[in-house]
Amino acid sequence: MKRLLYSITMLYSCSDCRYFSDDPAEIEDAFPGLNSLSSAYASVRSNAGVCSRHGLFISPRKQCADFEHSTAGLQSRVDIEDSQSSLMPRL
């Protein structure tokens, strides 16, 4: 069960996470000087963005244990595992 829950949570990635922002205007504000010789609207950025939880500049395809859904209030992988472990016997 734990493995199943893990794999389900891992269907989500940073792009769905409330801590992740790939808004180009916000990125240019966050990195002073970035627009002097580059641009957040460029193809090379792809849709990478800032993770405010860990202070990282990352690909939206990354995944981590602190995931929290941006809209539905879904729980992080750790929370899910913790709650399930208290509800069900370990597999």
Partner: peptide
Amino acid sequence: GVSGSMAIASAVG
């Protein structure tokens, strides 16, 4: 330059 850095920064997290 900055474009290369941005691409690699996101690739390596």
